[in-house]
Design a protein around this nucleic acid. Structure first.
Length: 599
DNA sequence: GGGGGCCGGGG
DNA sequence: GTGTACGGCCCCC
C-alpha cells in the first residue's frame, strides 16, 4: 500500500464493467509535487431514500426492482427523526431510470435525495473538498490497464478505503489563459468557413505566446505551417504547461465551440484533458459550458457578471474597471483587414491578440480567489462554482450541512409546486421616499447583516415554523403573526450563526496578521462567508429552493421593517429627522431646534 | 402593470 | 448525467 497526498481539482465518474468508478483529478503534493494524479474509487454506490406508506409491503415491492440493497436509515426531517428506506442501486444511471417507477407504486409515499449527481454525492458523503488537499491509500496502476488514454507522466492510482480530507492552505494554481482570433470578412465568424488565424496564450508563470499561420519579427509569435498545425501546437503547449486552470473570456460560448468545430473540420484531436480526453460540452439551461477533464475551464465573462456591477461586460470594459487602464483595441469587424494588410497593421493585431490573453490572466488573478474560497466552503467542484448562481451555492452548502448533521434533504419543487410558488412574493424591506432638497448635518444609520441577524435571533427556519404555539415559547412575527419555536435552534439559523461566528474569527485573525499575503487570504475567506450569509435569506423566498418557505421570507422582512421603523421613531425622539430609508438603514438630519424640513 | 420576447459576450 | 438553470430591458397591450 502506498499513500498519496494531492490538491483535489476535479471529480467525475466513468463506467467500467457496468460499475461506476469515481475519478478524483488532482495535483500531487510532497515528493512528486506538481505531477498530475487520477485516483479511482470503485467502491462508492448510488442510493436514494424512500418514504414508505406501508412498511412491509414497501420493502417487498422495492426488492422486486433490480436494486442492490434495501435497508432502514434514520434521518432528521422537519425537526423530528424519521425512518426512511435507503435503496442502494447498481449504477447512478439506474436512479433516473427507476425513480419514477418507484415513486408511483402504492406502498411508496415519496422518494428523497434522488437528484443529487453522483460526483456531488461522493464529495459530500466522503467529506472532501475541491481546492483542498486529500490523502488516499492504495496502489499505482499501469496507465495501459485503464480504459482512458492518459499520458505516461500522469499517475493513475486505485484507492482502497476512504479518502481523508486534510486541513490545508490555499493552493497555488497554475493557470493558462487563451484567446483566438478569426478571419471573418463576412460579419460574425462562421466556423464552417472562417479559419482561426491566431491562438494567444498567457500563463501566470511567464509564458506569453501567440501561435499564428503568419510570420512576424515580434519575438512572442510562433509561426506554424497550417491552421491544423496551430491547433496541434496548442494541444502540445497545454500538455507541457499542464495548467490546473484554463481560462478564457466568453470561451464557453465562443472560443471553445469554435476550436471544436475547426478541429473537427481539420481532423485534429484536441486531447487536452489530463485523462487524454477532448473537449466536452454541456447544455446548462440557456447557455453552454465547455469542459476539459482534469483541468478546470473557467470563463471569466460569467465571473465578471457576477462580481462586478457594470453597464457592459466586454473584456475591455472589465479590464478598465479593474486596472483603470485602456487596452489596445481592434474592432472585431476589422480584424480580417489588419490580417490581410500585413505590415504594421498585422503587428498591431499580434499585440492585441497577446494583450487579450494577458488581460485574461490579470483579470483572473483578481476574480478567481473568491470563487476558490467559495469552492472550499461550499465543497462542490470549481468548474460548477464558477458557473453557479449564489443561491445555488447556498443550496449545495446546506445540502452538505444537512448530511453532516444527519438531516434529510428536502426535494426540489415539482413543476406544479414551482408555478404555485412563483405566484407568491414576500413583501420587501421598508422604503421611505427621500425628502426632496439639499440636507445638512446628515447622519446615517444601518444594521449590520440585518436579515441574517433576524433569522438567528428569531430562529426563523422551516423546521421551527409552527401553526399553533400553546405550550412552547415562540417568536411571533409582526403584521402576519407567523410563529417560530424558540427552541431548539433551527437548521438554517444554526448554520448562519456558525458562518457569522467564523467570519468574526477571520476578521480578528486579519487584524493580527502581519504577512500581507496571509491577510489577503483571510480577507477573501471572510468575503466568501459574507456572500454566503447574505444570500441565505433569499433561500426562503426563491421558488426553486429546497428550503423554500414563504412564511419564513415574509417573517424576515416583516421583522426587518419593524426594526427599522422602531429605530427611526427612537431617533426622532432624540431630535433626528429621517429623510430617507431603505431596508436596513436610514439617513437623518439632526435638528436640535426641531425645525420642520418637510415640504 | 404585467406578460412575452430578446439579448448578453465573442470575431 | 442521481442534469435541463438567468435577469434585465424593451415593447406592446
Amino acid at each position: 500500500m502506498e499513500s498519496k497526498r494531492f490538491v483535489l481539482l476535479d471529480i467525475d465518474y466513468i463506467t467500467e464493467n457496468d460499475k461506476a468508478v469515481i475519478r478524483l483529478f488532482g495535483k500531487l503534493k510532497g515528493d512528486e509535487e506538481g505531477k498530475s494524479i487520477i485516483v479511482l474509487d470503485k467502491s462508492f454506490k448510488p442510493y436514494i431514500y424512500v418514504v414508505p406508506n406501508d412498511e412491509e409491503q414497501c420493502i417487498e415491492d422495492l426488492n422486486e426492482f433490480d436494486v442492490e440493497m434495501v435497508g432502514w436509515a434514520r434521518k432528521g426531517y422537519m425537526g423530528e427523526n424519521k425512518d426512511f428506506l435507503k435503496v442502494t442501486l447498481y449504477h447512478p444511471q439506474d436512479v433516473p431510470k427507476l425513480r419514477d417507477k418507484i415513486r408511483s407504486i402504492d406502498s411508496v409515499k415519496d422518494i428523497m435525495e434522488h437528484d443529487i449527481p453522483f460526483y456531488r454525492r461522493y464529495l459530500i458523503d466522503k467529506a472532501i473538498f475541491p481546492m483542498a488537499e486529500v490523502l488516499v491509500n492504495g496502489e499505482c496502476l499501469d496507465n495501459n490497464s485503464v480504459n482512458f488514454m492518459c499520458e505516461s507522466d500522469v499517475c493513475v492510482f486505485e484507492m482502497k478505503g476512504d479518502p481523508k480530507p486534510i486541513d490545508s492552505e490555499f493552493p497555488e494554481l497554475k493557470t493558462l489563459s487563451f484567446d483566438i482570433e478569426v478571419h471573418n470578412p463576412k460579419g460574425m465568424p462562421q466556423a464552417e468557413e472562417d479559419p482561426i488565424i491566431m491562438i494567444s496564450l498567457s500563463s501566470n508563470q511567464g509564458l506569453q505566446t501567440v501561435l499564428s499561420t503568419k510570420k512576424s519579427s515580434l519575438e512572442f509569435v510562433e509561426t506554424l505551417k497550417t491552421e491544423a498545425h496551430m491547433l496541434e501546437r496548442f494541444v502540445e503547449i497545454v500538455k507541457s504547461e499542464n495548467p490546473d486552470l484554463l481560462i478564457g473570456y466568453n470561451s464557453d460560448n465562443f472560443d471553445m465551440p469554435y476550436i471544436r468545430d475547426r478541429a473537427t473540420k481539420l481532423n485534429v484531436k484536441m486531447r487536452i484533458g489530463t485523462d487524454g480526453s477532448g473537449l466536452k460540452f454541456m447544455r446548462r439551461g440557456y447557455t453552454n459550458s465547455a469542459l476539459v477533464k482534469g483541468r478546470i475551464h473557467v470563463d471569466l465573462y460569467l465571473l465578471s457578471r457576477r462580481y462586478l456591477q457594470l453597464d457592459r461586460y466586454t473584456l475591455e470594459r472589465v479590464y478598465k474597471e479593474l486596472f483603470d487602464e485602456q487596452k489596445v483595441d481592434v474592432p472585431g469587424d476589422e480584424i480580417f483587414e489588419y490580417w490581410d494588410d500585413g505590415g504594421e497593421k498585422l503587428k498591431t493585431l499580434f499585440k492585441y491578440s497577446l494583450d487579450d490573453a494577458v488581460s485574461v490572466t490579470k483579470i483572473g488573478e483578481k476574480l478567481l480567489p473568491l470563487s476558490m474560497e467559495l469552492t472550499r466552503l461550499v465543497g462542490q467542484p470549481f468548474f460548477d462554482i464558477a458557473r453557479m448562481a449564489t443561491g445555488q451555492m447556498v443550496e449545495w452548502y446546506l445540502i452538505r450541512k444537512a448530511y453532516e448533521i444527519g438531516d434529510m434533504v428536502p426535494n426540489k419543487p415539482s413543476s406544479s409546486q414551482y408555478s404555485e410558488r412563483r405566484g407568491k412574493k414576500a413583501e420587501g424591506g421598508y422604503v421611505k421616499d427621500p425628502v426632496k432638497g439639499l440636507h445638512e448635518n446628515i447622519v446615517s444609520f444601518d444594521f449590520r447583516s440585518l436579515y441574517p441577524s433576524i433569522i438567528i435571533s428569531k430562529n426563523v427556519s422551516p423546521d421551527t415554523l409552527v401553526l399553533k404555539c400553546e405550550n412552547e415559547e415562540c417568536y411571533i412575527a409582526p403584521e402576519l403573526g407567523h410563529k417560530f419555536l424558540k427552541k431548539p435552534v433551527g437548521f438554517v439559523p444554526s448554520i448562519i450563526g456558525n458562518i457569522l461566528k467564523e467570519r468574526v474569527k477571520l476578521k480578528n485573525q486579519m487584524k493580527d496578521a502581519v504577512n500581507p499575503r496571509e491577510k489577503q487570504v483571510l480577507d477573501v475567506q471572510q468575503q466568501a462567508l459574507k456572500r454566503l450569509a447574505n444570500s441565505m435569506y433569499g433561500v426562503y423566498g426563491y421558488s426553486r429552493f429546497r428550503w423554500y418557505r414563504i412564511e419564513c421570507a415574509e417573517a424576515v422582512t416583516a421583522w426587518g421593517r419593524d426594526f427599522i421603523k422602531k429605530t427611526m421613531l427612537k431617533a426622532e425622539e432624540y431630535g433626528f429627522k429621517a429623510i430617507y430609508a431603505d431596508t436596513d438603514g436610514f439617513y437623518a438630519t439632526f435638528l436640535p431646534e426641531n425645525e420642520d424640513i418637510s415640504e
